Amino acid sequence: MAASPLLLASGSAVRATLLRNAGLHFRARDSRVDEDAVKKRFAGSDTDTLALKLAEEKAQVVSQAEPAALVIGADQILSCCGERYDKPRDMDEARANLKKLRARDHILHSGVALALNGAIVWRHSDRAHLAMRDFSDDFLDLYLATVGDKVRSSVGCYQLEGPGIQLFDRIDGDYFTILGLPLLPLLAELRRRKAVTA
């Protein structure tokens, strides 16, 4: 029996690049899930569970529309000192968030799920701990000027594969989890399901 075609339930260029670089053949379809509504529905959940619920919702919504595909859903939430962070709406919010994260540790909670025939068939969550250094306001201004509007594409206002790496003193966790897709467990499950070559 032929493997189900792979579908990424996301408009994220980073997640698509990770899968493409890993040699996967897939299509991408944005789930258009109302993330705020999901967060309200699971507001009492711990942050790991909430990231996983968002990933599951995205995978399930796309799977219901394309039941023959094996659908990958993923999401990520940042937490620091008991507060959860969303992607910044504008440059002012990005600046404020980075000032709050400066000289503190924070956690990136990443979830990934697979759906088939409209049902979740696999899920995995992971977390990474990151310590921002105590950078100056001058450095913050330079950083924001350098990265520009790209700062709004990440929940933490940084991309480790770019100038964002200069914000940190220490990183403890899987690189792919930090980028928002726990890739190694996902690939292992795809191989187990014969969705990719073992």
Results as ranks from 00 to 15, higher is better:
L184P: 01
A37F: 00
L54R: 04
E93N: 01
V147I: 15
D172I: 08
Q60R: 15
H129R: 14
Y175A: 12
A74M: 13
S136Y: 00
A68C: 09
L19W: 01
D138K: 05
A28V: 14
V151P: 05
L183W: 10
Y143E: 01
M1R: 09
K99N: 14
L142A: 12
R15P: 11
R41K: 15
I178D: 06
V112I: 14
R32H: 15
A131Y: 05
A55K: 13
R104P: 07
S125T: 14
T197M: 03
M132C: 13
L183F: 09
N21P: 05
A3C: 03
R191W: 04
D30L: 05
V33E: 09
G23T: 10
A74D: 11
N97V: 10
L186I: 10
F176P: 08
L50I: 03
S153T: 06
P185F: 02
E57F: 02
L142H: 09
D92Y: 08
T197L: 09
A51L: 13
A195D: 00
N117M: 00
M1I: 06
L190V: 00
E161T: 09
R133A: 12
R133V: 05
R27Y: 04
G44F: 10
K194G: 12
E161F: 07
N97G: 12
A55M: 12
A103E: 10
P163I: 09
P88N: 06
A131D: 00
T47W: 07
G148E: 06
D34G: 02
P5T: 07
E83V: 15
L167V: 04
L6K: 01
V121I: 15
P5V: 09
P88R: 07
R193W: 00
A13D: 10
I178Q: 10
S136G: 00
L142M: 02
R191S: 15
E161W: 06
L160F: 11
M132I: 01
L116Y: 10
C81Y: 14
C80H: 11
L50F: 01
A69E: 12
A13C: 02
V147K: 01
K150Y: 02
T47Y: 06
T177H: 07
M1H: 08
I72E: 04
P163A: 15
L108G: 10
L19H: 03
E35T: 03
T146C: 07
A9Q: 03
H106R: 00
L78Q: 09
D138M: 04
F176Q: 08
R192T: 13
G82Q: 13
I77L: 15
M1W: 03
R15W: 00
R104D: 06
D137L: 04
L6A: 06
F135L: 05
Q166D: 03
E83W: 09
R192C: 09
A188T: 13
G118W: 11
D34I: 08
E189P: 05
E35M: 04
L142S: 08
L181V: 08
S63E: 09
T146N: 11
A103C: 05
V61H: 07
E35P: 02
L140I: 07
P5D: 10
S63W: 11
A69H: 15
A119N: 12
F135E: 02
E66N: 11
R170D: 11
A3W: 01
L108V: 13
L187A: 05
R32Y: 10
R20E: 15
A59V: 05
W122H: 02
D86A: 15
L19T: 07
P163Y: 14
D172L: 04
